[in-house]
Nucleic acid binder design. Structure first.
Lengths: 350, 350
DNA sequence: CATAAGAGTTATAACGATACAAATATGATT
DNA sequence: AATCATATTTGTATCGTTATAACTCTTATG
């Protein structure tokens, strides 16, 4: 209509209506000082011209980027975890002015690097990080530098901050209880790497469960759920071939691919050792998928909803940016979706 | 040093050196008109002050966003695919000024929506899309609107554009050849959804392979590799229970989770039908992981390197933005990493 | 010795938005 | 009718950058 081809700006609207640019700007933001009639007219015209505020202009003037950065470890191979997380965050961002930005780092380099970069270049209004440690230097840095953030996992640094965490302690207790119920007595835990916060939760829950049911632990530290599928497979096979092998296993991970694909690795390792799940051994595992699992007749599954985690993290982070109190931005998700009964084979028609 | 706490700008450098802002700007860009001595001094000072150009200022002035948008289908559950793709793109973007932005859409809504949004708001300098159709309206739109892009998959619209594609025709032929070699005669193809370009490649390759080896096709259209794990599982079971069941299967997908997790679904479906892979039937499948697969003793695997795809797409897109000729920006990846021999069980030490 | 040419540098305007202060219009008050 | 208060609207400066055109020196040229 006006100035063919080029994007409409505040000025476009202003001249179209014979108003000042400032008036238009304020009208669009519903400034009380602008008369209702003008406001309506401006909004009308804005809609008609398909006006969209320029992110560049906005960003330059206000300093707000309208960007949320998800900082990811490139070694992280738990594909379903990452994609679910991303889509969850996006669901939270939908309808907000925020865009999602993904920033990589290598866990072999300094994990602080990407955080520092984003903060220094003011590349985002807020950051989401995963793989949280009890004393996490990234958290310290962001607090010190006043950068809003949310963490997938908790810290123990004496500072409150937005987080979402799956209650892994509860998970481990539930898992042990289930194995006890099945008559299992000697349990092994495939634990997370011990520098991560949720390692501690997991172990506490596991040990507490053992105590509650008077069960015995079979030490298993050859691998963590963060090792490669092949490594876990071998370790499991060795474990099941050893004289004091466990009759129950708790798998603290739920991935199926690459590093962290402990679920598949377990299957393969047990098969290698000629151990049949459900007979010689029972396994309780997490599962990160949204859909019903395939192997439900073998594994006992507790579902961890990573998409929800992403959603909550996104929401919490925006809340934090908006200055909402921290207490409202912390979620500890209790394991609810549990698939312990062994269902019959699916019917022919579905 | 100067103006404590606030980020250095061109002005900071300029005043520090008693120069004009313009001079500094041009010096940093190595303008020939600026004397070598001045240039050196400016760069020195820039480094000393840890100067980083403001993306906002740059973007406002030049119109360049330095953002690449990856547009993803939120129903896409092939977790390993998405995460590998993302990390691949990031590897390509590393060292460039580009950031990666992820934009979601629902395949049930208009797939054009996010493309239009990004184009209209000038949210990115270029777009990467997946799930390409032979006549893809998104491609048409981006060409018409002069938005640089790269596609994961090819189109057949009579226009050249940057793309990366895995040679699925070659894959299918190789797969059929392998099954023929194993003495299989009656083959089924678990194909991609037939609106996607690679469905055609896959079928051509499959049919051509059948012809080449004088084999027979067992029609299998109940599901595509895009269905849910449960659906594929049921369909496979039914297929294997039917009187004219195949003795060889080609799986055109390589995912293990959610929609597209055909690999696991196959395992489960065959087990449901009491069919043993390697005995009653042989299966050639793609595999999207980077690491060695767990099930190599059962499946015959052709590896598709999605991370490489991401890397090439990122590089091609930047090339396109920089105006390089399209011919240089098209890659058809021949399947190379093939795991057909059935290796012995892995040794105890590795 | 004036002047032109070239080298190097810089002021100004602009990108699109908002904060602030100033200006105008409207209506009420005396 | 003049003045004041209130309700609206608007001009100016600014965020950090670059394109354009103008400026200031040298140095060479006739």
């Amino acid at each position: 209509m006006t100035a063919r081809g080029s994007k409409p700006t505040l000025k476009t609207i202003a001249t179209a209506l014979g108003l000042g640019v400032t008036t238009v700007s304020r009208a669009l933001r519903d400034d009380e000082k602008i008369s209702p009639r003008t406001r309506a007219a401006v909004k009308d015209m804005a809609r008609k011209l398909a006006y969209r505020p320029s992110r560049a202009g906005l960003r330059l003037r206000t300093g707000k980027t309208n960007v949320i950065s998800l900082v990811l470890d490139t070694e992280e191979q738990v594909g379903s975890f990452i994609s679910e997380m991303i889509f969850g965050i996006m669901e939270a961002l939908d309808g907000t002015p925020y865009h999602l930005n993904v920033t990589p780092y290598s866990r072999h380099a300094d994990p602080l690097d990407p955080i520092r970069y984003i903060t220094e270049t003011e590349a985002a209004d807020g950051i989401i990080i995963t793989r949280i440690e009890p004393e996490d230097p990234r958290v310290r840095y962001m607090i010190d530098n006043n950068m809003p953030f949310a963490t997938h996992g908790r810290t123990y640094m004496g500072v409150e901050h937005p987080f979402y965490d799956f209650d892994n302690e509860a998970f481990a207790r539930i898992a042990v209880a289930r194995l006890a119920e099945l008559g299992r007595r000697r349990l092994a835990l495939l634990a997370p790497p011990d520098d991560l916060s949720f390692h501690n939760h997991m172990r506490h829950g596991f040990l507490r469960g053992l105590e509650e049911h008077g069960l015995e632990e079979v030490p298993f530290t050859a691998v963590t759920n963060d090792n490669s599928i092949e490594q876990i497979r071998h370790a499991i096979r060795d474990l099941m071939r050893s004289p004091d092998r466990p009759d129950g296993i708790v798998n603290s991970s739920g991935g199926v691919s690459g590093t962290g694909g402990a679920l598949l690795a377990l299957m393969a390792g047990l098969a290698d050792a000629d151990v049949v799940m459900g007979r010689n051994v029972d396994v309780v595992t997490k599962q990160l998928f949204q859909r019903l699992p395939v192997f439900r007749d073998a594994f006992h599954i507790v579902h961890e909803d990573v998409r929800e985690a992403g959603r909550e993290l996104g929401t919490a982070l925006i809340g934090s940016i908006d200055g909402r109190p921290v207490e409202d931005l912390q979620t500890l998700a209790v394991p609810t979706r549990v698939l312990f009964q062994r269902p019959e084979l699916p019917s022919d028609r579905e």
